[in-house]
Design a protein around this nucleic acid. Structure first.
Lengths: 347, 347
DNA sequence: TTGAAAGCGCTAACAA
DNA sequence: TTGTTAGCGCTTTCAA
């Protein structure tokens, strides 16, 4: 056996070309069809034949070629997910949860970052279509994302974590309005009467339901609206919003629309020597792990990530329970829950 | 046109099956080969013919089927990446950087979470092989990861962010030893004489070079070793290590092997009313964005993520500069840089 | 410059 | 229970 230079560099033993189905068939003394039957368990094969085939497979280290399978079957057993930015812990959590559920069902998840760019998002979606994924989870920053390529190609799609429903596309989301209400309610129960809002600014033209929820709960309680600051959904955004609030006057409590922003806000507050929760009480939104480790730890309205992930996968594949039937275009809304930590004044 | 019930649920207009190459060919009045020539630009086609073909493509909304392409070409234009956990901001950053560089080269990145499990890591690698990816980035938690399936299938592989070199596999990593030295040096320059270490515990049996670097720089300066705590690379791990340190006695300065741990440690310190950097000075490791928004902001030894990502992609695909030649099995080591913030005592 | 045709590896309908 | 065989949509060689 002579060593050859491979394109990848050093000399190594010649890589034996991967075994294919016909090699297995020959070695086992059967036809290629039988190998398929054994591999896919689609047809009855006599035990003895099956044993021989399995032996041959093991011996040759045969692995089915997935491109050929995909071509033939028209399915890749791949699901695609577009997120604004997987470096944001919330989306990292969500993508991780979806990946886990998809894996249980034998699907691989392709995750793509849109970086908050409409153009990039569209490119990723088209790419998914080209790759023939069996479904797409879209966490879009656009209010009315362009799902036409998906619809045209008849690819099951779910809008995941969108703030509002979009007609014609299934969606799995969290009740943002209720989350905001919960936060304001809790802050009010701590005795606060001047409750401000820091809200994300990149949700497009539609009003973020968290803003409405904050406003309505305030109104319901006969409380005046505290200051409102809009900035992007990042730590930097929260920091900048905090600086502005510091300059114009802090309320006694603040509802912040994401943990990321709250962490940035916290830094601005610390820099200014403002004590939390003594000088300002805080409740944020998302329920990411980071909220538990900031100082002080953040009370946050948490999304039931695992449940949402499962619902999203079910909306695309058939539900695990076959009796449940094929889902149509459904819109599922999950209820958030308040996690009490120190930032709101809880012990 | 009658509406039909689709498997996806509601009634919609029948989805026109995606156009294929032969449809384009027919519409343009050319052979299927010519369509390929136009799409791939592999051969000269008369301007007039090209125009007609392009028109037909646009009209039909034709998109090449990637499974067929992959089958024919033996390449998916996909790269795979296995990370221990993409919810860790450091790996999120790294994966994002690799995705960006890969996209520039026309490759899609498949990211998979091993969740720190050997078994899961192996499964992902095999899946990548089955899917026929054109290369794999492996961020393994195992010291000697099992790369045989990759080698057997002759798939270019690079160990990314590994702590040590492994023979026979290309690697792109950071100089952990030097990073630790930098941290200790800086702390010593702040006047600290008792410098402890919080180090990750899940690197396997091999000593983490950061531990050696810490120890050797201390020795070089004639300083005694401060307390050492081992715990996992999470916020929780850092928190627990902090609690133990609090119980046994804090040194005047601490080098922490990751930002995640440092953030957890910070919480333990805050809870105990310990002031940073006054009572304990901190330098951590990674350079993630979170370090900039903790309180106090963390001085951290930052990895040149973008450069590493580029090197890793180059190690797998040919370098962008064709003159640079095909890389063999190379081991690239990147130098970290100290980012000074408040936690070490810098202004 | 263009076209005909041979597969890439696999599945499954159909025949034996 | 097993085998034969026709494609899935694409690229590319070879011939015109």
């Amino acid at each position: 056996m002579t060593a050859v230079a491979t394109p990848h560099g050093a000399a190594k033993p010649p890589a034996k070309p991967a075994a294919k189905r016909s090699d297995v068939a020959r070695l086992a003394g059967v036809s290629t069809a039988v190998v398929s039957y054994v591999v896919n368990g689609t047809k009855n094969v006599s035990p003895e034949t099956e044993r021989r085939v399995r032996e041959a497979i093991a011996l040759l280290g045969y692995r089915p070629n997935s491109a050929a399978r995909a071509l033939r079957l028209g399915s890749n057993e791949m699901l695609g997910m577009v997120v604004p930015d997987a470096r944001n812990p919330y989306f990292a959590m969500l993508a991780h949860a979806v990946e886990t559920v998809a894996a249980e069902r034998g699907y691989t998840l392709l995750t793509a970052n849109a970086d908050g760019l409409l153009e990039t998002e569209r490119r990723h979606v088209e790419r998914f279509v080209d790759r023939g994924v069996d479904g797409v989870f879209l966490c879009s920053t656009i209010v009315e994302p362009d799902v036409r390529p998906l619809v045209d190609a008849d690819i099951p799609t779910v809008l995941l974590n969108h703030s509002v429903e979009v007609a014609g596309v299934a969606s799995v989301r969290i009740d943002l309005w209720e989350g905001a209400r919960l936060a304001v309610e809790h802050l009010a129960e701590h005795g606060h009467e001047r409750i401000g809002l820091v809200i994300g600014s990149n949700t497009g033209h539609v009003l973020d339901p968290r803003e409405t929820g904050w406003r309505q709960e305030l109104a319901r309680r006969g409380l005046a609206e505290g200051p409102l600051e809009r900035d992007i959904f990042t730590m930097r955004g929260g920091y900048d919003a905090g600086r502005r609030l510091l300059a114009t006057g802090l309320p006694s409590a603040l509802f912040v629309s994401s943990d990321r922003q709250a962490i940035g806000l916290l830094r601005a507050l610390h820099e200014a020597g403002v004590r939390v929760p003594d000088d300002v009480a805080l409740v944020s939104f998302d329920g990411s792990e980071d909220a538990a480790y900031s100082w002080p730890p953040l009370s946050t309205v948490a999304a039931p990530i695992a449940d949402m992930a499962r619902a999203a996968v079910d909306a695309i594949l058939a539900p695990a329970d076959p009796d449940a039937g094929r889902p149509g275009i459904r819109h599922e809304v999950f209820a958030p829950a308040l996690v009490r930590r120190a930032s709101c004044g809880c012990p």
